[in-house]
């Protein structure tokens, strides 16, 4: 599984990253993790509101911090 957090380093982006890391650990998944801070690359994903979560090259969430449950569901869906 390939996971990207798109964020400009804001507090909400850090929260999303730690939520996602927790989710991966809980589900026992094997994932490559990347925190993308380059605004050009963020924009090229079509994302304009950070933080955003990209799983396996698909934007699944943007512009808000989800609940831990929602993150787990998003990860389990893949």
């Amino acid at each position: 599984m390939d996971i990207k957090i798109l964020g400009s380093g804001c507090a909400k982006c850090q929260t999303l990253e730690s939520l996602t890391r927790d989710g991966i650990a809980e589900l026992g998944l094997d994932a490559a993790f990347e925190h993308v801070t380059d605004p050009a690359e963020i924009a090229s994903w079509g994302v304009m509101s950070t933080p955003a979560l990209v799983i396996d090259d698909e934007v699944v969430l943007s512009g808000r911090v989800p609940s831990a449950t929602e993150v787990r569901e998003l990860l389990a869906d893949r």
């Binding site: 924009a43 090229s44 079509g46 934007v59 943007s62 512009g63 808000r64 609940s67």
Partner: peptide, 26 residues
């Protein structure tokens, strides 16, 4: 590079698909 940026991926609209509980929690 701004004009050369190609937008890929689908746009996820953060305002859609939220319940009232989600909105109040926000």
């Amino acid at each position: 590079f701004v004009f050369e940026t190609r937008l890929r991926g689908k746009v996820v609209d953060p305002s859609s698909g939220l319940s009232w509980d989600d909105r109040l929690a926000m």
